[in-house]
Write a protein that binds this DNA or RNA. Sequence first.
DNA 1: CTGAAAGCGCTAACAG
DNA 2: CTGTTAGCGCTTTCAG
Lengths: 337, 337
Amino acid sequence: MVKITDVARHAGVSPSTVSYALSGKRPISEETRQRVEESIRRLGYRPHAGARALASSRSNVLALVVPLRAGIHVPVVMQFAVSVVTTARRYDHDVLLLTQEEGEEGLRRVADTALVDALIVMDVQLHDPRLPLLRALERPSVMIGFPASSDGLTCIDLDFKAAGEACVEHLARLGHRVVALVGSPPEVYVRQTAFAQRVVQGFTAAADRNGLASAVHPCEASPAAARAVAEQLLREQPALTGVVVHNEAILEPLVDAFEQLGLRVPGDLSVTAICPDELAESLRVPVTSIALPSAEVGTRAVELLMKKLGGSTAVPEATLLPPRMTERASAARRAIA
Amino acid sequence: MVKITDVARHAGVSPSTVSYALSGKRPISEETRQRVEESIRRLGYRPHAGARALASSRSNVLALVVPLRAGIHVPVVMQFAVSVVTTARRYDHDVLLLTQEEGEEGLRRVADTALVDALIVMDVQLHDPRLPLLRALERPSVMIGFPASSDGLTCIDLDFKAAGEACVEHLARLGHRVVALVGSPPEVYVRQTAFAQRVVQGFTAAADRNGLASAVHPCEASPAAARAVAEQLLREQPALTGVVVHNEAILEPLVDAFEQLGLRVPGDLSVTAICPDELAESLRVPVTSIALPSAEVGTRAVELLMKKLGGSTAVPEATLLPPRMTERASAARRAIA
DNA sequence: CTGAAAGCGCTAACAG
DNA sequence: CTGTTAGCGCTTTCAG
């Protein structure tokens, strides 16, 4: 293995000069830098990660905790993870993958052993058991999602409340007076996942504000459940003409169910969704939707961490990404009956 | 930060004793081990990962390279990754996530900096550009999938050829005489992804062996493409009664398309698939399928790596997991016309 | 069964 | 602008 002293000798400089040439932490004359770089290339030198971490107390590795639970949409998680890795690499960092399964002990382990410099935690719950730990940890972290109280923590996510509102406002503008929200599976609400609840809040607030009749229905991630919800909606809200869907897994089956029940989308029923753009685009009737900006959230999360690692104090605690709606075929002006 | 010397002092032993108590690499009297463990607990000691890596030249981290390209089924990748992480943890290892995007340079980087001890590479192509690198690397690796020549490499995957054969044999046993394979998107074949080709080989061989008329159709991952293929099949093979599907994304739309074209599954058309069990189970007509054992592949891949890291020489180069078929509703005996 | 001590390869004062 | 050097915290000979 070729080490820094080999490079130093080859270039006729001291090890520290090689180190500084690499890190740029102090000025190096153009001439020596050239020589050093040439030697590095010639010898194929690669600094030893462990030695670096030990001497600098920086591993240049971020931890990413991905959720495994029921009710989460896998492609979104994956896209997010890829965006985190890609962005981390731009900052010369790598990403260590942890599963939710490891729990708090896993977080503590990678933080305390200095395996990672910072952490990104997905799928945050309102009263997440990891909150005290993250606050206590000596390493910076960013949470994807908002807990009940985010004091002293850095959080980022789509503004789900605004997203719920925007869906309703859009339907209201189109003349719809009776609307329903078909949401995430019940267990998502039971474990108090923040984003699901915020959609409900936004939905309800906007419906009230606009004087719309409204109802909220959680829905399991199965076509059968979608069908059941569709039937229930028509039974309980016969005047229903606008539906907001916040559940990737059943968006398609739900629309199918409505059509099988004799309702045309958007002729009889307008649908808006909060879901990844690719999903909204791909359906037979493309769905007017608010994008789930997983890639942007991932990028921004890493950028926030880098700022914190850089010692910046001006890192915002809360970052709410404003919803962006794309109009597609599934929502139209209400037919005057 | 509490370090090994702190623990040693607290327990009244030498640092090396603490180290050995932790690693078990030399016998420690029950009594001192107790004292050491107590001190570790009391002080909350966590060995510094970088220091460890430097001193032992083992980082206890594995690299996992995940594919990003078109035509791969995300949930399968995710399940595989989770299984790798979970298994790695059982062997006291962590997992560093790399994207295909980083290419060979990424592999070289994490290997040469000693950031990782070993590598797992997914989505291997027949003539994968990473092969020479993996052979040359001083660190062990396992590939998921088989390249054209796997000499000197360790590979593991489902036996896709046998899987293709098994699907046809099953249809043949049920009396079907005219069969078709609806496969992966064309680009998957174009870039010579091994598994896709092996399915074709197995399918064709078994069809010939059984004297069946057969045809192979790649298919894009869109419902429209599925519909088009369905129509084409009925046009070109009017006597068709058996279909093998090797394309997660269009399994459901394809079955729908057949039914919309007036063919009942399995009444008029029997369908078998190579896909994750969850997908096969979840369809309206549950599909007789050969499981894509992502979790098992992940587990086995890590186990192979651990064996190699342990210096075992008896690690098999090729591991082909035998296909396991689960019969469901979609395939039935051919109706005698 | 246990201790002492020599590094592992790099960074970052400190000194010039 | 560059060199010298003292660690970073741990593992592992070597010695007993």
